[in-house]
């Protein structure tokens, strides 16, 4: 079976990329000196955190992207399709541009923003019948929030504007150890929900009517999947900023590579491939000192174009 061969290969690749993350940087540290005591501060406090963050971000966004593409039967859906990143950016904009203070700084503000969007969507989900209405409402929320952010940008001072724009470019390196524990906790819960709703994802491929006829409680499943995606994508966005195109592109790579439609294979496959791609993107961004978001866009967009042209 294809999966039996691919999973071990991808795991080896992940470990390799993770080691490379530890070894490369502004000070190159040869692999055999990686664990020497004198390098500990650089390795542990900077590169190890970044490596763990990159892995978690890749996993989260890709799993969330798979969920959204399946939930909305739309190959071009991604983690941010329902406005999670807009919610997060409103939180951050209120903090940086509007001068509203809150606990935990930027991450706290972004988490609150995503959380509000999720509560709105869960409320709406109880009232609408189908996924399409939910999708349209998500896009509407997202545009409304975008408009408010624009007003804040228009009214704010230049220095505040710059720190906001830098946040929107994304960064894996701003996370501290205590924050990492919070991020890891949020992602773990999100992943657990994702794993336990994997059969629901398979049923959702048949559309709501057939899925229900095969015993799926649609509202419950949609709520759980929304919650999972909010934790995964919202958590990542809170600590690292909005990171684009990974969640959109990786599930397609997983489908193509594993030649499967079974979410029980695609979920772990997307998680590992997502981690690999994000680690790779981070290595490139470090080599050329570029914002991570531009690298993920340049890597992800060709995949999206391929998906559209193939049809």
């Amino acid at each position: 079976m294809r999966a039996r061969l691919l999973f071990p290969l991808l795991i080896v690749l992940t470990v390799g990329l993770q080691l490379a993350e530890l070894a490369f940087g502004s000070v190159a540290i040869p692999l055999r000196e990686l664990f020497d005591a004198e390098n500990a501060s650089v390795i542990v406090d900077i590169r190890l955190i970044k490596m763990v963050v990159a892995t978690l971000v890749g996993i989260s966004l890709s799993v969330s992207g798979l969920q959204m593409q399946t939930l909305f039967s739309n190959p071009l859906a991604g983690p941010y399709v329902l406005g999670l990143s807009s919610g997060a950016s409103l939180g951050v904009a209120l903090l940086l541009l509007g001068g509203v203070a809150g606990p935990m700084g930027i991450a706290g503000a972004a988490l609150c923003g995503s959380g509000v969007v999720m509560l709105l969507l869960l409320g709406v989900n109880a009232r609408v019948r189908d996924g399409m209405s939910l999708l349209i409402l998500g896009i509407m929320f997202s545009s409304a929030v975008g408009a408010i952010v624009q007003i804040l940008q228009f009214l704010s001072r230049e220095s505040a504007l710059k720190s906001y724009v830098v946040w929107t470019m994304g960064s894996l390196g701003e996370v501290t150890w205590p924050q990492l524990w919070i991020l890891a906790g949020i992602i773990l819960v999100g992943l657990l929900i994702a794993v336990f709703t994997v059969k629901d994802l398979n049923l959702m491929m048949f559309g709501p009517v057939l899925a229900r006829s095969m015993g799926l409680d649609l509202r419950r499943s949609r709520s759980l999947i929304l919650l999972s995606t909010t934790l995964l994508a919202g958590g990542v966005t809170a600590f690292c900023g909005p990171i684009g195109f990974i969640g959109l592109a990786v599930p397609h790579i997983a489908r193509g590579l594993f030649r499967s439609a079974d979410s029980r294979i695609l979920l772990p496959a997307s998680a590992i491939i997502g981690a690999d791609i994000l680690l790779g993107c981070d290595l490139i961004s470090r080599m050329f000192v570029l914002p991570i978001n531009s690298i993920t866009a340049l890597v992800g967009i060709p995949v999206v174009i391929y998906v559209i042209l193939r049809k």
Partner: peptide, 13 residues
């Protein structure tokens, strides 16, 4: 159980 007219669109299924 029910059967509808639409096709299931799932690549590689």
């Amino acid at each position: 159980s029910i059967v509808t007219t639409g096709r299931v669109d799932a690549r590689h299924m």
